[in-house]
Design a protein around this nucleic acid. Structure first.
Length: 297
DNA sequence: AATTTTTCCAACCGCGGATAA
DNA sequence: GTTATCCGCGGTTGGAAAAAT
């Protein structure tokens, strides 16, 4: 079954975006919101395909994008999350507010993978999940003349170095959470933006999406703590481990243990600490898998 | 100063999953 | 149940900038 191209290629602009195009896109999204990428370019007066618009918005124009260099803390977190999640850049990005999957992917490929390789020569500690989610584009388009042209253009040193340096990871099957409403992807663990998002939805959620936490130490259960901002003593847990959790959330009553959103980095640290705990009892790989899967929710 | 090589990152490509028709 | 389409993801590329020669 062939797949139609996402858009007609003829007559569309490609390559770098101009300030005017950026402005048109931003203005349109500010007025009408995100989504409907296929029809967006026409409505916004852009000669771009919807995918290009989406990418430009997600990676560059969104107002919540953090500019500047990756901080040492972020650097460390990326390494640790990568060791847990592999090349699932969107998931990693979801835990680094303001950073995009593309940015993290680029940062990994240009900085971290090389640094880790150097370190690994001394003491191989970082081992990304050693599985691969799906065949690469390179594999599926082996005969691509474009690719061979590019490889020839690049220095042989770099090409061979990348071939050996880039960690190949296999990833478990991706899980898409179908929701009746959608959270901004970068906000999945970001309390502040989740809260502002909540209010921006015109009261769709009159609760505060407070924080993500683990509710069951043994089952590796994760989800959103949701609570009334006026009632911090009582929060409800929406089970992220349930496939249908958001559309029909499994609700658990849990007392809140800390100020929601008080320390987002602390929450991330906690997640990773729990991962390390599991590693210490590494015999039970199922438990570890469960933990990793739970992060995907 | 000129040329070559390497680095970096924005943007593109193709795929798979979800879902509408 | 089948097909077409949309969306989002991860891998890859192109080219500008920086560094090295």
């Amino acid at each position: 079954m062939g797949r139609a191209p996402c858009c007609a290629k003829v007559g569309l602009h490609r390559g770098p975006w101009t300030p005017r195009e950026d402005s048109l896109l931003v203005n349109y999204i500010q007025a009408h919101g995100e989504g409907h990428w296929r029809s967006l370019p026409k409505k916004a007066g852009l000669l771009r395909c919807g995918k290009s618009c989406r990418l430009r918005w997600m990676n560059y124009l969104r107002p919540d994008i953090k500019r500047g260099n990756i901080t040492p803390d972020e650097d460390d977190l990326i390494i640790r999350l990568h060791s847990l999640l592999g090349n699932r850049w969107s998931l990693i990005a979801g835990r680094l507010p303001g950073r995009t999957d593309n940015e993290i992917k680029n940062y990994w490929n240009t900085h971290l993978s090389k640094r880790l390789l150097r370190n690994q020569d001394n003491h191989p500690t970082h081992r990304p999940p050693s599985t691969k989610r799906r065949k690469t584009t390179a594999e599926s388009t082996k005969e691509s003349t474009k690719k061979s042209k590019h490889n020839n253009k690049k220095s042989p040193n770099r090409a061979s170095a990348e071939a050996t340096e880039r960690p190949k990871v296999h990833l478990p099957k991706a899980i898409r959470v179908t929701t009746s409403f959608s959270l901004p992807r970068n906000d999945s663990f970001d309390c502040n933006t989740a809260i502002s998002w909540s209010s921006s939805q015109g009261g769709l959620l009159d609760r505060e999406v407070a924080h993500v936490a683990r509710s069951d130490e043994t089952a590796g259960l994760y989800g959103f703590f949701v609570g009334d901002p006026q009632d911090r003593g009582h929060h409800e847990f929406f089970n992220g481990a349930n496939d249908d959790s958001t559309a029909n959330p499994h609700r658990l009553e849990c007392p809140s243990e800390e100020e929601p959103g008080k320390d987002q980095n602390g929450t991330l640290e906690n997640l990773y600490e729990e991962y390390l705990q599991l590693l210490r009892t590494e015999d039970d790989l199922v438990q570890l898998d469960s933990f990793a899967e739970s992060l995907l929710m």
